[in-house]
């Protein structure tokens, strides 16, 4: 009995942890199946502005998202400053910086070529992408 209860607790904890995991999401119609870690950073930081098929990349992120900062290796202000450098030299269009993961998922779902990073449980109809 105790063993069953322990296993249930473990399963519940695992489920909770899994739902709290963040994931890279793209537009549901995207042909992209997986991305390398460096490629993900390049896309979010504006170093790559096009997908392999030539379509433009549109970035959407949650404001002050700690997990995202860890993913790209930049603090929130460093991320914004980096994009301002691109925007004011004509080398990139500013990402959508939204207040909630739901808003990011909704934006990615309706925008072809969009990429975002949200809590996996809030990815909605977006396509989650595995990071190789």
């Amino acid at each position: 009995m105790h063993r069953v209860s322990f296993l249930c607790s473990l399963l519940l904890a695992f489920t909770t942890l899994a739902s709290a995991e963040d994931t890279v999401i793209v537009h549901p119609a995207s042909a992209v199946a997986g991305l390398g870690a460096d490629e993900v950073k390049d896309l979010f930081l504006g170093r790559k502005g096009n997908w392999p098929d030539g379509s433009k990349v549109t970035v959407a992120v949650v404001k002050d998202h700690e997990g995202f900062a860890a993913l790209v290796g930049k603090s929130s202000s460093q991320f914004v400053t980096g994009w301002k450098k691109l925007v004011f030299t004509g080398k990139g269009v500013m990402p959508e910086i939204l207040d909630s993961p739901e808003a990011v998922a909704a934006f990615v779902a309706k925008t072809p070529g969009a990429i975002g990073y949200v809590d996996a449980s809030k990815a909605g109809g977006c396509k989650p992408i595995a990071i190789k």
């Binding site: 502005g49 096009n50 030539g54 379509s55 433009k56 925007v87 004011f88 004509g90 080398k91 990139g92 269009v93």
Partner: peptide, 17 residues
């Protein structure tokens, strides 16, 4: 300064500041 920037079609970016 004031700028306008757009990706009117795939692979193309145009802008002015």
């Amino acid at each position: 300064a004031l700028n306008a920037l757009a990706n009117p079609v795939d692979r193309l970016r145009i802008g002015i500041q």
